[in-house]
């Protein structure tokens, strides 16, 4: 495990953009300028609903799809100019856990083969060393050696996700992107997987990007939260700040809509009108305009950049500060 100075950014994402052409010269703006840093031992959560572009961010960082503009910097060097072959080298440091362990494990491969593949392709370990590493890995994610000889369909969802995590960690990466790692799991299993991730993060000093739509989970795991809406980050800051003092109307709507499994909690709901607007060629305007409860005339005429409103707390709404002066109930 390498040690880095405090706040050392392993990964820096700068003005990342991804536009998909959808015909007739139109473009779908899946991501429209996203910035954040990932640091060892810390978790940044990317929160948003479907269509916010949060999963596309992870795919762009891994270069499973090519970003349209912007930069992804790993240890000070941009990885976007790298050839696919050079990129494979970077996958030793950069790994990803997928949402649905059902779909991300090859149904015809036993766990042993799944976990051995990265070792064969990325390391020079001999057969005996690989076996040692496999046993170590499978126990590290809370499974037993017996699980190595099972097929994915012979295991439960939680066990499969443990295998997905083991595969990502097989070659000791420094950064792991977690794309909704608990979304397809039962609640009781969810807690176990989150605990495992936390334990591994501390043990291996991993930098996590945690992509999720599940606010209670994000509050539980993240050090920093970035809220995405229609391809943009609308609010970004330390987790407690975001949850105790959300500023952007969208953040407030999102937090106030999240169900709380406790008796007697009444939520003060912030409601948005209508439905999410189209990401195809959006105008230069606040992305929430048309739905926003505190909309001003100027909102639909210009872009709303992120503005610093507190220590590391940025909001893409100049009216949020005045309109919501009181602290949210929490």
């Amino acid at each position: 495990m390498k040690t880095y100075p405090k706040n050392y950014p392993i990964v820096q994402v700068r003005n990342l953009q991804k536009h998909f052409p959808v015909g007739r010269g139109q473009k779908l703006h899946a991501i429209d300028g996203v910035d954040f840093d990932l640091q060892p031992g810390r978790t940044v959560a990317l929160v948003g609903e479907s269509g916010s572009g949060k999963s596309t961010v992870a795919r762009c960082i891994m270069r499973l799809i090519e970003p349209s503009a912007g930069d992804v910097i790993l240890h000070g060097n941009s990885i976007l100019p790298l050839t696919p072959l050079q990129m494979v080298e970077k996958y030793r440091q950069l790994q990803m856990v997928f949402q649905d362990p059902n779909a991300s494990l090859n149904p015809r491969m036993k766990v042993r083969k799944v976990l051995e593949e990265p070792l064969k392709l990325h390391s020079h370990l001999n057969a005996a060393q690989r076996t040692t590493r496999l046993n170590e890995l499978i126990e590290m994610v809370g499974l037993t050696v017996a699980h190595l000889d099972r097929y994915p369909h012979e295991m439960s969802g939680g066990q499969r996700q443990r295998v997905g995590i083991a595969r990502a960690l097989a070659i000791n990466p420094e950064v792991v992107l977690l794309d909704e790692p608990t979304a397809s799991l039962d609640v009781s299993v969810r807690g176990q997987i989150l605990a495992l991730l936390k334990e591994l993060q501390v043990k291996l000093n991993l930098a996590f990007l945690f992509i999720s739509h599940d606010l209670p989970v994000v509050r539980h795991v993240a050090d920093e939260v970035a809220v995405m809406y229609l391809g943009r980050i609308v609010e970004q800051g330390p987790t407690e700040d975001i949850f105790h003092n959300p500023r952007h109307p969208y953040t407030r709507a999102l937090i106030s809509a999240a169900p709380v499994a406790e008796w007697g909690v009444t939520r003060k709901r912030v409601r948005l009108d209508g439905e999410i607007s189209t990401p195809i060629d959006p105008p230069a305007a606040c992305r929430l305009s048309g739905r926003c409860p505190i909309e001003q005339p100027s909102c639909s005429t210009r872009d709303m950049p992120l503005q610093e409103i507190g220590a590391d707390h940025r909001v893409a709404c100049p009216f949020a500060v005045e309109q919501f002066p009181e602290r949210a109930t929490g």
């Binding site: 795919r59 891994m62 499973l64 996958y91 779909a103 593949e117 392709l121 990325h122």
Partner: peptide
């Protein structure tokens, strides 16, 4: 475009693999 194809790339396979 199945996820296991993406996952296979991340563990170091090239396109042929």
């Amino acid at each position: 475009d199945w996820q296991y194809a993406e996952a296979a790339r991340l563990v170091g396979n090239n396109s042929w693999g």
